[in-house]
Simulated assay, not measured.
Amino acid sequence: MYSKMITSMGCATLLLSALTFIACDAESSTWQAEWVEPEPPCRTSSEDNCEYGTLVDDRDGQTYKTVKIRDQWWMKENLRFRYVEPTSTLDSSSFCYNDTLQYCEMDGRLYLWSAAMDSAGVYSDNGKGCGYASECNHADVVRGVCPLGWHLPSKEDWDILMESTGIGSFGGEKLKAVTSWNRNGSSWNLTGTDDYSFSAYPVAPMFYLNGQYDYGRRIYYGNDAVYWSTASKDSLNSIALILRSGDHHVSFGVYGFAKINATPVRCLKD
Rank of each mutant, 00 (worst) to 15 (best):
V141N: 05
A139C: 03
A231T: 07
I239Q: 04
K68I: 11
I69N: 05
L16T: 09
C136P: 03
L101Q: 13
S187F: 06
T179K: 08
D57Q: 07
D234R: 00
L241C: 05
R143Q: 15
F81I: 00
K4T: 12
F170K: 07
R70D: 10
S124T: 09
V84S: 14
D234A: 09
P38C: 04
W35L: 12
A225M: 09
C130R: 02
T13I: 04
L161T: 05
Y83D: 07
R59A: 13
D214G: 01
G166R: 04
H249P: 02
A26I: 00
W35T: 15
N49L: 13
I6E: 09
W73M: 09
K76W: 04
S88I: 01
G246K: 11
S229H: 03
A33P: 07
Y123F: 14
G211M: 02
S17C: 03
S17R: 14
T191I: 00
A120K: 01
S28T: 15
V145C: 03
V145W: 02
C11S: 14
G256K: 01
K76P: 05
A225C: 13
G172L: 01
M5Y: 04
M162V: 14
R244A: 10
F257D: 04
K128N: 08
L101M: 07
K233E: 11
V56S: 15
D99Y: 04
G129F: 14
V56M: 13
D140Y: 05
L90F: 04
H138F: 02
I219M: 13
S245D: 13
V56Y: 03
Y213C: 09
S164R: 14
C130G: 06
M1G: 15
S251V: 11
P38S: 04
S169T: 15
M75R: 02
C136D: 01
V254S: 10
S124L: 03
Y221G: 00
F21E: 12
R43A: 15
A26D: 05
K128V: 03
S45A: 15
C11L: 08
Q72G: 07
S245F: 06
N223L: 06
N137P: 00
F21R: 05
R266D: 01
G168N: 08
I260E: 04
V142F: 06
K128L: 10
S114W: 01
Q102D: 08
R82K: 14
A26E: 03
C50T: 04
D118E: 06
Y52V: 05
F21W: 03
M206W: 00
N223D: 12
K174L: 14
W158G: 03
D107Y: 10
S17V: 05
G121D: 07
L14N: 02
L148W: 00
R43P: 15
S251G: 11
T63V: 12
D214V: 13
S187I: 11
K76E: 13
P264G: 00
D159G: 09
K128R: 09
W228K: 01
A225F: 08
L110M: 10
L175M: 15
D58A: 14
G185F: 02
G246A: 14
T20Q: 08
L101G: 06
C146I: 01
A231E: 12
F95I: 00
F21N: 11
G222C: 07
N189E: 06
G53A: 15
Q62T: 10
D224N: 06
V84I: 09
